[in-house]
Protein backbone atom coordinates (compact mmCIF):
# COMPACT_ATOMS: atom_id res chain seq x y z
CA UNK A 1 0.00 0.00 0.00
CA UNK A 2 1.03 3.58 -0.52
CA UNK A 3 2.37 5.40 2.50
CA UNK A 4 -0.07 8.00 3.79
CA UNK A 5 1.37 10.97 5.63
CA UNK A 6 -0.98 13.75 4.58
CA UNK A 7 -4.23 13.85 2.64
CA UNK A 8 -4.76 17.24 1.09
CA UNK A 9 -7.38 18.48 -1.34
CA UNK A 10 -10.97 19.31 -1.92
CA UNK A 11 -13.62 17.39 -0.03
CA UNK A 12 -17.16 16.30 -0.91
CA UNK A 13 -19.43 18.21 1.51
CA UNK A 14 -21.67 15.16 1.97
CA UNK A 15 -22.83 15.52 5.56
CA UNK A 16 -25.28 12.61 5.54
CA UNK A 17 -25.72 10.65 8.79
CA UNK A 18 -25.95 6.86 9.14
CA UNK A 19 -24.53 6.17 5.71
CA UNK A 20 -24.75 2.37 5.54
CA UNK A 21 -22.63 0.22 3.28
CA UNK A 22 -25.68 -0.55 1.13
CA UNK A 23 -25.76 3.16 0.33
CA UNK A 24 -22.03 3.15 -0.38
CA UNK A 25 -22.25 0.09 -2.64
CA UNK A 26 -25.51 -1.77 -3.30
CA UNK A 27 -25.66 -5.58 -3.16
CA UNK A 28 -25.93 -6.15 -6.88
CA UNK A 29 -22.34 -4.98 -7.28
CA UNK A 30 -21.03 -7.74 -5.01
CA UNK A 31 -20.92 -10.33 -7.78
CA UNK A 32 -17.78 -8.78 -9.18
CA UNK A 33 -14.52 -10.66 -9.47
CA UNK A 34 -12.48 -7.53 -8.84
CA UNK A 35 -12.00 -4.87 -6.22
CA UNK A 36 -11.51 -2.32 -8.97
CA UNK A 37 -14.24 -0.55 -10.88
CA UNK A 38 -16.67 -0.41 -7.98
CA UNK A 39 -16.49 3.40 -8.02
CA UNK A 40 -19.10 3.41 -10.76
CA UNK A 41 -21.56 1.77 -8.37
CA UNK A 42 -20.68 3.92 -5.37
CA UNK A 43 -23.64 5.86 -3.93
CA UNK A 44 -25.66 4.61 -6.91
CA UNK A 45 -29.05 5.48 -5.47
CA UNK A 46 -28.03 8.98 -4.40
CA UNK A 47 -26.49 9.68 -7.77
CA UNK A 48 -29.86 9.28 -9.47
CA UNK A 49 -30.49 12.81 -8.18
CA UNK A 50 -28.80 15.09 -10.75
CA UNK A 51 -27.85 17.59 -8.06
CA UNK A 52 -25.89 15.01 -6.03
CA UNK A 53 -22.58 16.12 -4.60
CA UNK A 54 -20.58 13.26 -6.11
CA UNK A 55 -21.29 14.26 -9.71
CA UNK A 56 -20.83 17.99 -9.11
CA UNK A 57 -17.82 18.98 -11.28
CA UNK A 58 -16.73 21.38 -8.52
CA UNK A 59 -15.66 18.38 -6.39
CA UNK A 60 -14.55 15.94 -9.09
CA UNK A 61 -11.63 13.82 -7.93
CA UNK A 62 -11.75 15.01 -4.31
CA UNK A 63 -9.76 12.71 -1.97
CA UNK A 64 -11.90 13.42 1.11
CA UNK A 65 -15.55 12.98 2.14
CA UNK A 66 -17.03 14.98 5.03
CA UNK A 67 -19.97 13.01 6.41
CA UNK A 68 -22.35 12.70 9.36
CA UNK A 69 -22.08 10.28 12.24
CA UNK A 70 -22.13 6.48 12.10
CA UNK A 71 -20.56 6.36 8.67
CA UNK A 72 -20.26 2.86 7.14
CA UNK A 73 -22.85 1.13 9.30
CA UNK A 74 -24.67 -2.05 8.24
CA UNK A 75 -23.28 -4.87 6.12
CA UNK A 76 -19.63 -5.81 6.62
CA UNK A 77 -18.90 -5.83 2.91
CA UNK A 78 -15.32 -4.79 2.18
CA UNK A 79 -16.66 -3.73 -1.20
CA UNK A 80 -17.67 -0.43 0.44
CA UNK A 81 -14.04 0.43 1.06
CA UNK A 82 -13.07 -0.84 -2.38
CA UNK A 83 -15.73 1.40 -3.95
CA UNK A 84 -14.50 4.51 -2.13
CA UNK A 85 -10.92 3.69 -3.05
CA UNK A 86 -11.93 3.28 -6.67
CA UNK A 87 -13.55 6.77 -6.56
CA UNK A 88 -10.13 8.14 -5.62
CA UNK A 89 -10.94 8.70 -1.96
CA UNK A 90 -8.18 8.58 0.63
CA UNK A 91 -9.99 9.80 3.75
CA UNK A 92 -13.40 10.16 5.36
CA UNK A 93 -14.03 12.72 8.11
CA UNK A 94 -17.12 12.12 10.26
CA UNK A 95 -18.17 12.29 13.93
CA UNK A 96 -18.12 8.46 14.15
CA UNK A 97 -17.67 5.31 12.08
CA UNK A 98 -18.84 1.74 12.29
CA UNK A 99 -16.02 -0.48 13.60
CA UNK A 100 -16.21 -2.89 10.71
CA UNK A 101 -16.10 -0.16 8.12
CA UNK A 102 -13.16 1.61 9.71
CA UNK A 103 -11.30 -1.73 9.83
CA UNK A 104 -12.05 -2.36 6.17
CA UNK A 105 -11.08 1.20 5.28
CA UNK A 106 -7.80 0.83 7.17
CA UNK A 107 -6.99 -2.44 5.37
CA UNK A 108 -7.35 -0.55 2.13
CA UNK A 109 -5.33 2.49 3.15
CA UNK A 110 -8.29 4.84 3.68
CA UNK A 111 -7.94 7.12 6.71
CA UNK A 112 -11.03 7.54 8.90
CA UNK A 113 -10.89 10.73 10.95
CA UNK A 114 -13.39 11.22 13.77
CA UNK A 115 -14.07 14.87 14.73
CA UNK A 116 -16.86 16.46 16.80
CA UNK A 117 -20.03 17.59 15.05
CA UNK A 118 -19.05 21.30 15.38
CA UNK A 119 -15.88 20.60 13.42
CA UNK A 120 -17.90 18.71 10.80
CA UNK A 121 -20.30 21.66 10.49
CA UNK A 122 -17.38 24.02 9.90
CA UNK A 123 -15.69 21.62 7.44
CA UNK A 124 -18.95 21.35 5.47
CA UNK A 125 -18.71 25.11 4.93
CA UNK A 126 -15.04 25.13 4.03
CA UNK A 127 -15.44 22.19 1.64
CA UNK A 128 -17.81 24.26 -0.51
CA UNK A 129 -14.93 26.40 -1.70
CA UNK A 130 -11.56 25.38 -0.27
CA UNK A 131 -9.27 22.42 0.37
CA UNK A 132 -8.79 20.57 3.65
CA UNK A 133 -5.54 19.07 4.97
CA UNK A 134 -5.28 15.93 7.09
CA UNK A 135 -1.82 15.51 8.63
CA UNK A 136 -1.61 11.93 9.86
CA UNK A 137 1.78 12.39 11.50
CA UNK A 138 0.61 15.38 13.55
CA UNK A 139 -2.95 13.98 13.83
CA UNK A 140 -4.46 17.30 12.77
CA UNK A 141 -7.08 18.55 10.35
CA UNK A 142 -6.55 22.11 9.11
CA UNK A 143 -8.08 24.53 6.64
CA UNK A 144 -6.65 27.61 4.89
CA UNK A 145 -8.59 29.71 7.45
CA UNK A 146 -6.60 28.84 10.58
CA UNK A 147 -9.07 26.12 11.63
CA UNK A 148 -7.22 23.34 13.42
CA UNK A 149 -8.50 20.17 15.11
CA UNK A 150 -6.59 17.23 16.47
CA UNK A 151 -7.87 13.67 16.21
CA UNK A 152 -7.15 10.29 17.79
CA UNK A 153 -5.92 7.25 15.90
CA UNK A 154 -4.83 3.79 17.04
CA UNK A 155 -0.99 3.88 17.13
CA UNK A 156 -0.71 0.54 15.28
CA UNK A 157 -2.99 1.74 12.50
CA UNK A 158 -1.13 5.03 12.28
CA UNK A 159 2.15 3.14 12.01
CA UNK A 160 0.81 0.86 9.27
CA UNK A 161 -0.70 3.75 7.31
CA UNK A 162 2.35 5.99 7.51
CA UNK A 163 4.67 3.08 6.66
CA UNK A 164 2.32 1.89 3.92
CA UNK A 165 2.00 -1.54 5.56
CA UNK A 166 -0.95 -3.86 5.16
CA UNK A 167 -0.97 -7.39 6.59
CA UNK A 168 1.11 -8.57 3.67
CA UNK A 169 3.41 -5.59 4.18
CA UNK A 170 3.81 -6.49 7.83
CA UNK A 171 4.81 -10.05 6.98
CA UNK A 172 7.26 -8.77 4.42
CA UNK A 173 9.07 -7.00 7.26
CA UNK A 174 10.27 -10.56 7.97
CA UNK A 175 11.53 -10.80 4.42
CA UNK A 176 15.09 -11.66 5.51
CA UNK A 177 13.84 -14.56 7.60
CA UNK A 178 11.64 -15.82 4.76
CA UNK A 179 14.53 -15.50 2.34
CA UNK A 180 16.91 -17.48 4.51
CA UNK A 181 14.23 -20.17 4.98
CA UNK A 182 13.88 -20.36 1.20
CA UNK A 183 17.64 -20.63 0.72
CA UNK A 184 17.86 -23.43 3.26
CA UNK A 185 15.01 -25.30 1.58
CA UNK A 186 16.65 -24.82 -1.82
CA UNK A 187 19.80 -26.52 -0.60
CA UNK A 188 18.30 -29.16 1.70
CA UNK A 189 15.01 -30.01 -0.04
CA UNK A 190 15.39 -28.84 -3.64
CA UNK A 191 12.42 -30.97 -4.72
CA UNK A 192 10.13 -28.84 -2.58
CA UNK A 193 11.62 -25.59 -3.83
CA UNK A 194 11.19 -26.55 -7.49
CA UNK A 195 7.39 -26.80 -7.56
CA UNK A 196 6.08 -26.64 -11.12
CA UNK A 197 9.40 -25.30 -12.34
CA UNK A 198 7.65 -22.15 -13.62
CA UNK A 199 9.85 -19.60 -11.87
CA UNK A 200 9.40 -15.89 -12.45
Amino acid sequence: MEKVSTVEGRAYPFGMKNVDTDIIIPAHFLKTVTREGLGKGAFEALRKDPSNVFDNPEYAGSPIIVAGDNFGCGSSREHAAWALLDMGLKAVIAPSFSDIFSGNAFKNGIVTVALPQEAIDRLMEVAETDPITIDLEAQTVTTPFQDRWTFEIDPFRKYCLTEGLDEVGLTLQSDDAIRSYEERQQSEQPWLARGTGLAA
Partner: peptide
Protein backbone atom coordinates in the same frame (compact mmCIF):
# COMPACT_ATOMS: atom_id res chain seq x y z
CA UNK B 1 -8.85 -16.19 -6.06
CA UNK B 2 -10.05 -13.23 -8.20
CA UNK B 3 -9.93 -10.60 -5.44
CA UNK B 4 -6.63 -11.95 -4.17
CA UNK B 5 -4.96 -11.46 -7.54
CA UNK B 6 -6.69 -8.10 -7.84
CA UNK B 7 -5.24 -7.03 -4.50
CA UNK B 8 -1.75 -7.92 -5.69
CA UNK B 9 -2.27 -5.91 -8.84
CA UNK B 10 -3.54 -2.90 -6.90
CA UNK B 11 -0.60 -3.04 -4.50
CA UNK B 12 1.86 -3.52 -7.34
CA UNK B 13 2.94 -6.87 -5.90
CA UNK B 14 4.04 -10.04 -7.64
CA UNK B 15 3.49 -13.67 -6.74
CA UNK B 16 6.57 -14.32 -4.63
CA UNK B 17 7.16 -17.90 -5.80
CA UNK B 18 5.00 -18.58 -8.88
CA UNK B 19 6.42 -22.10 -9.19
CA UNK B 20 4.81 -23.04 -5.87
CA UNK B 21 1.29 -22.23 -7.05
CA UNK B 22 -0.87 -24.28 -9.39
Amino acid sequence: SPQAFEALRMAGRKVRRPELTL
